[in-house]
């Protein structure tokens, strides 16, 4: 479990806090999506959960943040990284710079832990398969495409099997199928391995399909927290500048012309959009 209790954090020399009075609890095995406009504090929240705040970024941290009962501020980063996996927003910064092939890059963390060679090879093979990296396994991690590098960054964390995964926009450069595969993979981990996942993401279709809960940040504060359907269809999203899916946009516009059933919530996925627009049509035909 993750627990934040009135957490406020200000970067060194910053005028305003990046995180303001955040209190929340995240239960084990849940998949929580974080959304918010640029600068809302999403990456800062990730950095805190992974212990980079306050161990790497100093500044002023107030309140209490616990991961599995351990106070993040009092637990050394070296210990935190063994159970919290953190995928940075920029995959380039994730590369160790010490390895000649993507396979070695992915194995780097396990190697440091002294995991036996055979087990290491098996685990590395599994994530190479999971993220479709077979063709580039023997290439330099610097001579690959942007999306491939993002897959390598994900694989190098997944292979560590952390109990908590903190993913900062991990699908930004992935193709549509790759993005779906990441969501399927993390859903499997939460369901079968009791892993807890916190993911910053703007692809609402996948959030709606896979997440248990969505937290919206704005100017360092939690402004919405609830089920994907409730949060992702809130009119507040567009107001504060968050991406809104075309399904939701279409239904919202349609509802103004009574082309969407008034009793139905706005849709976030294809299935819900089909259902609503079909119902609206039937209703109309019955009237006619």
């Amino acid at each position: 479990m993750i627990q934040l209790d009135h957490v406020t954090y200000t970067y060194p020399q910053a005028k305003h806090p990046a995180l303001s009075d955040i209190s929340l609890e995240i239960t084990e095995s849940s998949l929580v999506a974080i959304v918010g406009p640029s600068g809302a504090g999403k990456s800062s929240l990730c950095a805190l959960l992974a212990g980079f705040i306050p161990h790497h970024f100093h500044g002023i941290l107030q309140g209490r943040a616990l991961v599995h009962g351990q106070d993040i501020a009092n637990t050394p980063l070296a210990e935190l990284v063994t159970h919290v996996g953190y995928v940075f927003q920029n995959p380039f910064t994730q590369l160790s710079g010490a390895k000649l092939t993507t396979r070695e890059e992915i194995a780097f963390g396990l190697e440091n832990l002294g995991v036996p060679r055979l087990e290491m090879a098996e685990r590395v093979d599994r994530v190479i398969e999971l993220f479709s990296l077979r063709d580039i396994a023997n290439r330099s991690p610097y001579e690959i495409s942007g999306g491939e590098m993002q897959r390598v960054a994900l694989a190098s964390i997944f292979v560590m099997k952390p109990r908590v995964l903190v993913l900062d926009e991990p699908t930004a450069q992935l193709d549509p199928l790759g993005a779906r595969q990441v969501f399927e993979a993390i859903r499997t981990l939460t369901n079968t391995q009791s892993v807890t996942v916190i993911i910053v993401e703007d692809k609402t279709e996948w959030i709606a399909t896979f997440a248990d809960r969505v937290i919206t940040l704005h100017e360092g504060r939690v402004v919405l927290d609830g089920s994907p359907d409730a949060v992702l269809t809130s009119p507040l999203l567009a107001e504060i500048g968050i991406r809104v899916s075309h399904y939701t946009q279409a239904a919202r516009a349609a509802s103004r012309h009574r082309l969407w059933p008034s009793e139905l919530a706005l849709p976030t996925t294809l299935d819900k959009a089909i259902d609503g627009f079909k119902r609206a049509r039937k209703k109309y035909e019955n009237l006619g």
């Binding site: 193709d175 549509p176 199928l177 279709e205 899916s245 075309h246 399904y247 946009q249 279409a250 516009a253 294809l270 959009a273 089909i274 627009f277 079909k278 049509r281």
Partner: peptide, 23 residues
Amino acid sequence: FLEPPQMTRLGRALGLPETVTTV
């Protein structure tokens, strides 16, 4: 390994006569 835009998929599923791509 690509999918059409959201509106194209929705339009097709609803049997709209023409291909639509935008809201």
